[in-house]
Simulated assay, not measured.
Amino acid sequence: MQEAVSNIAGYRFVELPDRDELREPFRLQCQKSGLKGTILLSHEGINFFLAGSQDGIDQYIDFLEEDERFSNMALKYSYTNYQPFNRMNVRLKKEIISMGMDNVKPAERTGEEITPQEFKQWLDEGKEVAVLDTRNDYEIRLGTFENAIDLDIKSFRAFPKAIQSLPEEMKDTPVVMFCTGGIRCEKASVVLMDAGFSNVKQLQGGILGYFEQVGGAHWNGDCFVFDHRVAVGPDLKQSDVVQCFACRQPLTVEEQQSSDYVIEVSCPHCIDSR
């Protein structure tokens, strides 16, 4: 049996005035450690998805710990029997998650975190809470929390405008925001607070952190992930979802049975455009 490949993901909003100078040390470390994946460096922080041997991952973590700005970072681990990335990229970006609003600075303030355990307890008890999904429409189509609010957005940049449609009375209701790993809802929480929402919380560790800590309670479906696995279930194992070669939309098992799905040609989401 092929040895498991260790996958790691992490991010942190932190001011990096030396962003450009950091690129080469990160590239060399990943090359030395035999890692593949992507590291995004921005003046607002760092975001990365990497895979390789456990020893290589450990070396990378030791490298992070040498800089106090990256020490004790919350990391997410998973394992595959193949390398999910084709190459190693270290990219310089304006934002580590694109929203296009220069005045939004998560390094300075964000909504409070709520742990997966506490969030599950709230849902178990039927506590009055607005559960807000900050992800894109194609992700939500695969799965989301029970009764979650879907903003029907195609990209994160649409989030600030989309929240204008939320009811005014929701501004005084506890709001728990969530996304895949936490980075989007951390940034989005600033926008929500600036819009006058008084009790904004973000799910610690996102959906994947929730799966890891409490399983799939109150969740329906799978969770889209941004690598070759396409989607994982509450057990954090790769699901049967695939991606259309033509339009890159994720396809459920049911959609794969459609006559519109022809491998490398079309799927129910793009057949009419061909």
Rank of each mutant, 00 (worst) to 15 (best):
E108M: 03
V176Y: 15
K32V: 13
R157C: 04
A51H: 08
G10D: 06
K161D: 05
S42E: 14
K36P: 00
V90A: 10
E108W: 06
F156V: 12
E255C: 10
I140H: 06
Q121W: 06
P160D: 12
R19D: 01
P268G: 12
S165F: 00
F211W: 08
A195K: 11
A9H: 03
P116N: 06
E113Q: 11
D20R: 10
R27I: 07
K93W: 02
T80H: 14
F159L: 15
A162L: 09
L192G: 10
I39L: 06
M1L: 13
P167L: 05
S266W: 00
M170F: 10
T180R: 10
Q31L: 14
A217K: 03
E118C: 05
V241M: 11
R87A: 07
A162C: 09
S53A: 14
Q117N: 07
V225E: 07
A74T: 13
G45D: 12
N47M: 10
G209Y: 06
L123F: 11
S258D: 11
D222E: 11
Q202F: 04
K120W: 01
E95Y: 01
I96C: 07
R141L: 14
A107E: 15
V200T: 09
E139H: 14
I153R: 10
E3N: 01
I97W: 03
S78W: 02
S78C: 11
L251C: 14
L40V: 08
D20W: 00
V242C: 00
Q249V: 12
S259C: 01
S53E: 13
N103A: 13
P116H: 03
W122K: 01
D124H: 10
S266M: 05
H43L: 06
E66S: 10
H218W: 09
Y11E: 07
T252Y: 02
K201S: 09
F70V: 15
I153C: 08
D150T: 10
H228W: 03
K187L: 11
L166S: 05
L41I: 02
E108C: 00
I207Y: 00
M193Q: 14
C267H: 03
N199M: 04
I153Q: 08
